[in-house]
């Protein structure tokens, strides 16, 4: 490898004394002292969560309080760290939402495994799982950090439904376009 010798300009006396450089450095830091702080005083101030932020995955209910998840297990399938575990179950025939037929019997997300990739939200055909704005999860044991269904619904709350698929289905069953 060829060595290239870089010609360096000899330092002037002022440069060698180092003092002008110190002064310019001091000027920079002094300027900085009068700028407002760039930090966020976290527990008092909360950061603005931008739309599309991927926080803790949660399950949501529709405005009628029906659980949207039908336990299709696509999220369990797509989950890269295998954090999601679903036991599917059947909705009993006499339930109000019996026309949906299927709902999770148990839905677990292991928050110790979750990598917040958002693939579950992306894959969900029922728009039932959302990575919302919760970014801080704490717990005192491993078991506590395996979020069960009730906890996931408590975190998720209710989100507006954009297409009312199942309501439409029910109304079609009750009134519209019947056979005979």
């Amino acid at each position: 490898m060829a060595t290239k010798v870089v010609e360096r300009k000899p330092l002037s006396l002022a440069e060698r004394s180092y003092l002008p450089q110190i002064v310019s450095g001091l000027r920079v830091t002094m300027k900085n002292m009068f700028k407002p702080p760039v930090t966020l005083e976290y527990p008092d101030e909360r950061p603005d969560i931008p739309p599309g932020y991927r926080g803790v995955p949660t399950l949501v209910k529709d405005p009628d309080g029906r659980e949207k998840c039908v336990s299709c297990q696509l999220c369990e399938f797509v989950c890269p760290p295998k954090a999601i575990r679903i036991i599917p179950g059947e909705i009993p025939e006499d339930a109000e939402t019996a026309h949906v037929e299927k709902a999770p019997e148990e839905f677990e997300i292991n928050m110790l495994r979750c990598i917040y990739c958002g693939l579950c939200q992306e894959v969900c055909p029922e728009e039932a799982i959302f990575l919302q704005d919760i970014f801080s999860v704490t717990g005192t044991s491993r078991e506590e950090l395996v979020f069960k269904k009730d906890k996931l619904y408590a975190l998720g709350g209710t989100l507006p439904d954009s297409h009312f698929k199942w309501e439409k289905k029910k109304s079609a069953e009750l009134t519209g376009n019947p056979h005979h």
Partner: peptide, 11 residues
């Protein structure tokens, strides 16, 4: 055909 692949066992 209904759009119930999410709950359909055949999916």
């Amino acid at each position: 055909h209904p759009l119930d692949c999410p709950i359909c066992d055949q999916a």
